[in-house]
Simulated assay, not measured.
Amino acid sequence: MSVQTRPNSGLFNKLRTGLVRNTTLAVLIAGGVFAVSATASAADVIKWRLQSHFPTSSSSYKDSVERLQKVVAERTDGRLQIEIFPAGTLFKANETFNAVSRGVIQMGTISPGYVQDKLTLAGIASGLPFAFREVWETAYFHTQLGFEDMLRKEAAKYNVYYSTDKVYPTEMVVKKPINSWEDFKGLKIRSSGILQRFLTDAGASGVYLPGTEVYSALASGVVDGAHWGASQGAKSTGLYEVAKYHVKPPLNIAGTDAFIINQKALDKLPDDVRTILVQALDEQFWLRTNEYLYKEQITLAKAQKEDGVKVIVLPEDVQQRLTDSAQKLWDTEAERSPEAKDAVERLRKFLGELGYL
């Protein structure tokens, strides 16, 4: 006859009650820890404001600014949140640098052309005409030959950290092929800024027109050619409908967009958050440069197929004349400061090594 043993019911109940109490206590403690942790996380969130010079309609607003916003939020687990404002929301484009410098906002995006009164290297950053012929050359000049560091050093005088977003080409479209110097120097070309001055000095006629008038001016024959970025700009604005020749090499290749950060705000960030932000900006330079170049290639291929666009290369004698004319503008920029002189000397040496000078 087997004997069945039963647990002591009193002892069992005591153990069970103790287990429940301990479990409940553990849950409460854990919940308290989670609650404290959640409160601490909320308290540790850093919120910045960024004023961009891109309107929301610009592809760079999404591809550059919104991308960085998302990457930084993800990699910092939400500890750094950047609120972005499109062009003109808080300040005019040419006021953003001062706002960041004074710490009114923590970040911004600008074109270096907006700050030529402050940064003597801004003209070079905007793109000296007929210097580089390939995008990689400009990227190398910025990152390997020290130009980006020079820009950051000069911007630091204004309590600003400077980071170029990308480098990309400016290329023009024309209504007739260019087979000789005579063909080129008779052109009326819609342009702006330093490139307008360059084209006029070189022998063509640089004509400024607002973007809204470029298509009609080409269609009616007011101008013979124009530049609006490169292939992406020409395609999106319909210029290929009335100008079937896409001209290479570029008029310039430059880092005409940049992120700027208030240096004191950057220094106040926790070390790991600051490292993530700076690394994200450095990474973005390469990613956006390559992405933009990729989109240029596929857009131009699409324009050739769909719009009958033909790619033409300027004759060597025309390229040489343009280079000679461009160097006068290089010399003018070099006179702005010892730093600008150094940058132009580095540029000339590099182009000489590449066989362009």
Rank of each mutant, 00 (worst) to 15 (best):
Q106G: 12
Q106S: 10
Q106M: 05
M107S: 04
M107E: 14
M107R: 06
T109V: 05
I110E: 00
S111I: 02
P112D: 15
P112G: 09
P112E: 10
Y114A: 14
Y114G: 01
Y114T: 12
Q116I: 15
D117L: 09
D117M: 07
D117K: 08
D117F: 06
L119E: 11
T120E: 14
T120P: 04
L121E: 08
L121V: 05
A122N: 11
A122W: 13
A122R: 04
A122I: 09
A122M: 07
G123V: 07
I124W: 11
G127D: 04
P129D: 13
F130D: 04
A131S: 13
A131K: 00
F132N: 02
R133S: 09
E134P: 00
V135D: 08
V135I: 15
V135W: 06
W136F: 11
E137C: 06
E137D: 07
A139N: 05
A139Y: 07
Y140M: 13
F141S: 09
T143S: 05
T143H: 12
T143A: 11
Q144V: 06
L145S: 06
G146I: 12
F147V: 09
E148Y: 09
E148H: 08
E148R: 15
E148A: 15
D149F: 06
D149S: 12
L151V: 13
L151C: 13
R152K: 15
K153L: 09
K153H: 15
K153F: 10
K153D: 13
K153V: 13
E154N: 14
A155L: 08
A155H: 03
K157D: 14
K157P: 03
N159H: 14
V160D: 01
V160G: 10
Y161W: 08
Y161T: 14
Y161K: 10
Y162Q: 05
S163H: 12
S163Y: 14
T164V: 15
T164G: 04
D165W: 01
D165P: 02
D165H: 11
K166P: 00
K166F: 08
K166V: 15
K166S: 08
V167Y: 05
V167N: 00
V167I: 13
Y168M: 09
T170P: 02
T170L: 15
T170G: 14
M172I: 01
M172V: 02
V173F: 10
V173M: 03
V174C: 04
V174Q: 04
P177F: 03
P177M: 09
P177V: 01
N179L: 06
N179A: 09
W181Y: 01
E182T: 05
E182N: 10
D183P: 04
D183H: 03
G186A: 06
G186P: 05
G186L: 04
G186D: 05
L187C: 08
L187R: 01
L187G: 00
K188F: 01
R190V: 06
R190M: 10
R190C: 12
